[in-house]
Amino acid sequence: MNSVKERLYNGIVKENPTFVLVLGMCPTLAVTTSAMNGLGMGLTTMVVLALSNMIISLMRNIIPDKVRIPAFIVIIASFVTIMQLLLQGFLPSLYDALGIYIPLIVVNCIILGRAESYASKNPVIPSLFDGIGMGLGFSFALTCIGAVREILGAGEIFGFHIMPESYVPISIFVMAPGAFFVLATLTAIQNKIKAAGEKKGKDMSKIQSGCSEDCLGCDGKGGCSHGFYDTKAGEKTEGEVK
């Protein structure tokens, strides 16, 4: 049970895929024009992430190492297709709003990243919850970005008008540049909170990511237990080539 909690915390706070790992930027920047779209995208990704993590973890001892990436892609693509058909059938408005970004979940690097670095090496239950945790972190981040963009760019949140009548929407925030402004600002705030916590002497290594560096600045030389970059796999292939 402890590993379940640890995985959820890891995905939502410690290694939040958007604000800490800065993964999956394409959907993050493209679909977060409103809070609803962000939440929809996040939850869809979460379902795919959790299920594909689970299946990959189940099959981790069967899949040969050399063809693991194609195998992961096939599994992920199957779940994305299922999700796409379900959305089209039951939530057509969300399906229309997300458009091409639903099939593109297949190539979302959070999913492949978690499959490669976590699910292919760990037992089923932690992998499932790793997927759920990462997915929740992603949903949380996308909803935050979407909400800020929607409030500033349209004066609404989840479709409800909240700003006073005299407010003129800053429409750049629902366009592409707005996504960058909001993402950068939220990441900065998140880092500020971390830094403030460190000053107070809290053990921020838990939030940081195990090593002294951020995962962003990590050149993949290892030392870090969760190893987003699978250094060993790389070495092996290199050796085989030689």
Partner: peptide, 8 residues
Amino acid sequence: CFLLISFT
């Protein structure tokens, strides 16, 4: 340009 895009 920011203003021009936002408040055309």
